Simulated assay, not measured.
Amino acid sequence: MRVVNTPEGTSAPDPEALGAQPAPLSPRGARLGPAGAGPEMAFDRPLQVGASGGHGPIGYRVEAYRPGRSVWFAFLRPAGFAGGHGLEIEPLGGGRSLLRHRLEMTVSGAARLSWPLAFRPLHDALVEDALTRAETELGLPPTVRRWSFWVRVLRWFLSGGRARPQAPAG
């Protein structure tokens, strides 16, 4: 099964406002990652081509990195995930830009079930939380993106019953 997922991004006043932020979703203190809404990213070295790491059960390697502009991660795990995902800042002209997340992969084996039932809803909620946090960090009014009932159930289950009932606002 081929999966291409490009949720709507976050618009910023200018490309430099986004590019001046810490590397999107990088470990330890990146202000554009989802605050407390999921497992924190960790890498074996600073964000650069060849760094490997991930978050939770998802593992990947940095395949391409243009500081302040884009990062692309290739999946290493779980089994059945082939492809990658990344973030890019797209200049829109007129001093505006768009932060966009893109996911391109094929799933096989058990991932044909685990992706649509668990990984996709959790992934989409995590990306939406990150985009909301980006808006907040840029001083823009955050778009409220509520978790679905299924995401709340999955987060509660994965946290051993300790998950918050709703995503953070920013």
Score class of each variant (00 low, 15 high):
residue 8 E to Y: 02
residue 143 T to A: 09
residue 48 Q to H: 15
residue 39 P to D: 14
residue 149 F to L: 14
residue 44 D to E: 02
residue 19 G to A: 04
residue 120 R to T: 02
residue 122 L to T: 01
residue 155 R to C: 14
residue 135 E to V: 00
residue 125 A to G: 09
residue 120 R to C: 03
residue 163 A to F: 09
residue 154 L to D: 05
residue 129 D to P: 05
residue 166 Q to M: 04
residue 19 G to K: 01
residue 104 E to W: 06
residue 41 M to N: 11
residue 8 E to K: 08
residue 97 S to P: 12
residue 2 R to M: 10
residue 100 R to D: 01
residue 103 L to V: 15
residue 70 S to I: 04
residue 67 P to C: 11
residue 117 L to G: 09
residue 67 P to E: 09
residue 139 G to S: 06
residue 58 I to L: 13
residue 12 A to Q: 06
residue 74 A to L: 10
residue 136 T to Q: 12
residue 110 A to P: 02
residue 103 L to E: 12
residue 49 V to L: 08
residue 62 V to H: 04
residue 117 L to P: 11
residue 98 L to I: 03
residue 1 M to S: 14
residue 103 L to N: 07
residue 35 A to E: 14
residue 164 R to V: 09
residue 52 S to N: 08
residue 158 L to I: 08
residue 116 P to A: 05
residue 59 G to C: 04
residue 167 A to T: 03
residue 21 Q to I: 06
residue 119 F to L: 13
residue 31 R to I: 12
residue 50 G to R: 02
residue 165 P to Q: 04
residue 130 A to N: 07
residue 118 A to T: 12
residue 63 E to D: 13
residue 83 G to T: 06
residue 17 A to P: 03
residue 168 P to T: 12
residue 49 V to G: 12
residue 143 T to V: 12
residue 11 S to M: 13
residue 123 H to W: 00
residue 147 W to A: 12
residue 33 G to K: 10
residue 76 L to S: 14
residue 117 L to W: 13
residue 51 A to H: 01
residue 122 L to C: 00
residue 145 R to P: 01
residue 90 E to P: 02
residue 16 E to A: 15
residue 168 P to Q: 09
residue 43 F to K: 09
residue 101 H to V: 14
residue 64 A to C: 05
residue 46 P to H: 09
residue 90 E to W: 10
residue 122 L to H: 02
residue 154 L to P: 08
residue 144 V to P: 12
residue 107 V to A: 05
residue 150 W to F: 03
residue 142 P to G: 00
residue 146 R to L: 12
residue 162 R to W: 09
residue 156 W to N: 09
residue 58 I to M: 11
residue 106 T to L: 01
residue 88 E to P: 05
residue 15 P to M: 06
residue 150 W to P: 02
